[in-house]
Simulated assay, not measured.
Amino acid sequence: MTDYFNAFEISPVPDGPDAVAPDPFLGIYAMPMFVKIPTRDLRASTDFWVRGLGFVDLFSVPGQIVHLRRWAFQDVLLVPADDDAAGSAASTTQVFISCVLGQLQSVADACRELSPDSVTGPYDTAWRTRDISVITPEGAHVTFTAATPFTPDSDVGRDFASVGIFAPGDSEGGPQ
């Protein structure tokens, strides 16, 4: 398909190997997407998401909901689990959160301090990211993913080009 175009300017994700993460976004907006995760212990889950994963408690209704946020459009709602089925729902939840390379180790360290066996990684993927995987207290699987530098003439760059994904400004990719 050739209808794709470069739209990085609308993303809150900073680009580049030395990118600096934005501060948590505290504005109120109509959320285009969010994740709702049931938990048996709102306080413990909130503590882990805030101190371990770097979210802020945007607002809470005690005993009903905790609205967490990192960057713009990284919203998570923690809600009380209703029954045993809710725990299994959380354990099958997978959330992927963009970050910058410089954040991976500090998030991994903070989570390991709170729960020593909660983190796997960091590890590199075939699609040029470095990731860590975290199991939260409620059993959600959270992957923090950071872009690694893109080299168009690398194996990954050639693999991307073979499926029609070109580096910004690459003449083969059309207008970028």
Rank of each mutant, 00 (worst) to 15 (best):
W71Q: 15
V95W: 03
S154I: 04
L58K: 15
L53C: 04
S118Y: 09
S154D: 02
D131Q: 15
L101G: 08
I37Y: 08
P152A: 06
G87S: 07
V134G: 00
V35D: 09
R130G: 00
V95H: 04
V107F: 01
R51Q: 08
L26D: 01
L26A: 03
Y123R: 04
D47P: 06
R128L: 10
R158G: 11
L101I: 06
A81G: 13
A89P: 07
A44E: 12
Y29M: 15
C99Y: 02
V50L: 02
A86K: 00
P152H: 01
L77I: 02
F160Y: 13
F96R: 14
S45R: 01
V119W: 01
D84E: 13
D82Q: 14
A44S: 12
F73C: 12
A44Q: 08
A90K: 11
G63P: 01
P32Q: 13
D155L: 11
Q64N: 15
T125A: 04
G157A: 08
D124R: 09
Q94K: 13
T92M: 11
R158P: 11
G52C: 05
V50C: 00
G27S: 13
L114A: 04
A85G: 07
C111F: 09
V95C: 10
A72E: 14
F25M: 06
F25R: 02
V107T: 09
R130C: 08
W127S: 00
D82N: 09
K36R: 11
T151Q: 09
T92P: 13
Y29P: 14
V76W: 10
D109R: 06
T129E: 01
G27I: 05
G27Q: 14
S154R: 05
F144I: 01
L101S: 05
V142A: 08
L53H: 03
Q105W: 03
E113A: 04
T92A: 13
Q105K: 06
V61W: 06
P149T: 00
T151A: 01
L114M: 09
H67A: 02
V50A: 05
L78K: 05
A30H: 15
F59V: 04
T39M: 07
G63Y: 00
G52V: 00
A72P: 10
Q64D: 13
V119F: 02
L26H: 04
L58H: 15
T46R: 14
M33D: 09
D117N: 08
V61T: 11
D75A: 12
R128S: 07
Q94I: 14
Q103M: 04
T136V: 10
D159S: 12
Q74N: 04
A89K: 11
D83Y: 00
G139K: 13
F144Y: 05
A85V: 05
P137C: 14
A90D: 12
D124N: 13
F96Q: 11
V134N: 02
P122Q: 10
V156P: 01
A72N: 11
D117V: 04
E138K: 03
T129D: 03
W127V: 06
S133H: 00
P122C: 10
P152D: 06
Q74F: 07
V35H: 14
S91L: 11
S91Y: 09
